[in-house]
Design a protein around this nucleic acid. Structure first.
Length: 478
RNA sequence: GGCCCCAUCGUCUAGUCGGUCUAGGACGUAGCCCUCUCAAGGCUAAAACACGGGUUCGAGUCCCGUUGGGGCUACCA
């Protein structure tokens, strides 16, 4: 049997990391089996669904590199089909019309929810005679269609949670079609999964409790249900389900915060799944290779932004410099540090710069912002750096001397600049460290930067000499 | 409230048929090394089997209960 899975988000909000992980697991399963991934938008609640959300979800999936083979299919385009399924259920006696209005139900619910807990639908309309139903329909009274929950237990073997059972008596006669004629989610999923020949339903564990209802529908329809695999939920730091309340839970917010998609994918894969080894770094291909539903955890996981950040650092540090340049380019544009010369003539220089400064960064944002320090003409001097490394009066003498040496050495590379500086320090009878740290402030305006000779080489002789000389004015100010 | 599910370091997790598990790895934290700063990298440390009963020669691993957490309980998805 071929693997046909689906990712079925509802466009009532942004794609958050929980949904993204569900999408990832589905994608992994499909790719691993050479199967099919269907993207289905569950927008049967027209009140809460928004097209902009659908676009955002698609944008997020594309950014993560999770491609689908069929769809996007909007559930709202299949309403007639859903209604036909409901009619069939009506026909076979598995469903019935209910004329109780939502307001009336709310009233009864309030009155009925006494000591023994929740009120469930009392099946008032189930006992209506055929004539009574016909009369109400003729009078144009709106009717919902409810599923008639049969007696007995329902159970299924979940691919990650194992055996799950529920007694039918605990289920109420749920609504299949609203009195407005709109089918509900419960009917929609079953009808769609059936029509789309879905073989594995992989979704969040918040759907476990609804699965028995869906199973009843499959049974009433005389069809074999797919394999169900529920994945544990991702929790916020407060241990409740991730939502907008938890700030940046949206996938696109991570993209905008300078997170690389491969880092998010790698991190998410390991949140709730393990291959049983100590391995932490997985690229797409090895994830496809190693993933299995059996390795999915049964307990919920707290989202740890620090660890995501660590993964992001790993990828920023290890991506080929040329590739990294491609990724930061848009971020640099956003930060206003992009220059056209980076597109052509100075592409190599940009790549070299990125490779030099990246060990200090864990996000594309911070990395991009730093480019300006090296590529721009002017630099800002950080007060703290000036106070810490630019406070020796003799620097007013040393720095011009260093500038002069550097201006005249034959070659200008790592070895020559270092030997020039150390030789000068020796001649001046001072520590090389004094010159080095002061040079750092003079060349970058900061107390934190790559090795000073890397800085000199990346800046080039001319800019190095110029900044060294220009910086002297700052000494007296400190 | 009812029902369902879950339970190993602060966090993510490994833990084969119950037997060197004095519980392993990673993030984070602390220290050390490297060193021109800060990172990166390397090394080290502190840090967990929720609790109580069973079963067993032996339980983190099986069973029951308690506690804790999460989910569902809509004419939401």
């Amino acid at each position: 049997m071929s693997v046909r899975v689906r990712f079925a988000p509802s466009p009532t909000g942004h794609l958050h990391v929980g949904g993204a992980r569900t999408a990832l697991f589905n994608w992994l399963l499909a790719r691993q089996a050479g199967g099919t991934l269907i993207l289905r938008i569950e927008d049967t609640d027209r009140e809460r669904s928004a097209d902009s959300m659908t676009r955002g979800i698609i944008e997020a999936l594309e950014w993560m590199g999770l491609d689908w083979d069929e769809g996007p299919i909007r559930q709202s385009e299949r309403l007639d089909r859903h209604r036909a399924v409901a009619d069939a259920l009506l026909e076979t006696g598995h469903a019935y019309r209910c004329f109780c209005s939502p307001e009336e139900l709310a009233r009864r619910r309030r009155a009925g929810s006494g000591t023994t807990g929740e009120w469930t639908y009392d099946r008032r309309c189930l006992s209506l005679s055929v004539d009574a139903v016909a009369a109400r329909m003729a009078s144009g009274r709106p009717a919902a269609i409810r599923f008639r929950v049969p007696e007995g237990a329902v159970g299924f073997e979940d691919a990650v949670f194992g055996q799950i059972r529920k007694r039918g008596e605990e289920l109420e006669d749920f609504v299949l079609v609203r009195s407005t004629g709109e089918p509900t989610y419960l009917l929609g999923v079953v009808a769609d999964d059936l029509d789309m020949a879905v073989s594995h339903v992989v979704r969040g564990a918040d759907h476990i409790s609804n699965t028995p209802k869906q199973l009843l529908l499959y049974r009433a329809l005389g069809r074999t249900p797919p394999v169900f695999a529920h994945v544990p939920l991702i929790l916020g730091p407060d241990r409740t389900r991730l939502s907008k309340r938890h700030g940046a839970a949206a996938v696109l917010a991570y993209r905008d915060a300078g997170i690389l998609p491969e880092a998010l994918v790698n991190f998410l894969a390991l949140l709730g799944w393990s291959d049983g080894t100590d391995r932490e770094i997985f690229d797409r291909a090895s994830l496809i290779d190693a993933f299995s539903l059996g390795g999915v955890s049964r307990s919920n996981a707290v989202f740890d932004g620090d660890k995501l950040s660590w993964f992001n650092g790993r990828y920023i540090h290890s991506l080929p410099a040329a590739e990294l340049a491609v990724r930061v380019a848009p971020v640099m544009r956003g930060a206003g540090v992009w220059e056209d010369r980076f597109e052509a003539a100075d592409r190599g220089w940009l790549e070299q710069l990125l490779a030099t400064i990246r060990p200090r960064f864990r996000s594309l944002d911070a990395l991009a912002a730093e480019v300006g320090t090296y590529a721009g003409e002017d630099i800002d001097y950080e007060q703290a750096a000036v106070e810490k490394f630019f406070n020796d009066p003799s620097l007013a003498e040393y720095l011009p001397a260093l500038a002069e040496r550097l201006e005249n050495i034959e070659r200008f590379d790592l070895e020559s600049t270092e030997s020039a500086l150390r030789t000068l320090a020796g001649e001046l009878g001072t520590r090389a460290g004094l010159l080095i740290n002061a040079s750092r402030v003079a060349l970058t305006g900061k107390s934190v930067a790559p090795g000073i000779f890397d800085v000199m080489v990346i800046l080039g002789r001319e800019k190095t000499v110029r900044r060294l000389r220009a910086s002297i004015a700052r000494i007296s100010l400190s």
